[in-house]
């Protein structure tokens, strides 16, 4: 079970958090102008990487804030956490 360093609260048990899927997928500003395929790309397509992955997490049983996490899915090492809207601190 991870120890997650919430950017607002500090280090907490994983059981306080909820994973929210891939990070940095921006909701299209003009959905009506997208083709079915383009919309499907936004709506359904997600990466499933073995290695460095950018994820959204929510401190649901804490401050209820959403934030981003960089995690190596091959060994579960958390490389970084950062607030929504911030640039990832690692590549």
């Amino acid at each position: 079970m991870f120890l997650i360093n919430c950017p607002f609260c500090g280090e907490r048990e994983q059981s306080e958090f909820k994973a929210g899927g891939e990070a940095h997928i921006v909701r299209p500003k003009q959905p009506t102008e997208l083709s079915d395929d383009q919309w499907a790309e936004y709506l359904f397509m997600r990466k499933n990487i073995k290695g460095i992955q950018f994820e959204r997490w929510n401190h649901i049983h804490g401050c209820r804030k959403w934030f981003n996490m960089v995690r190596d899915t091959s060994n579960d090492e958390i490389k970084a956490v950062y607030k929504m809207g911030e640039k990832p601190p690692v590549k």
């Binding site: 929210g20 959204r56 959403w66």
Partner: peptide, 9 residues
């Protein structure tokens, strides 16, 4: 939870 998600992100 869903409304908070849209508001925050």
């Amino acid at each position: 939870g869903k409304l908070e998600d849209y508001l925050q992100t």
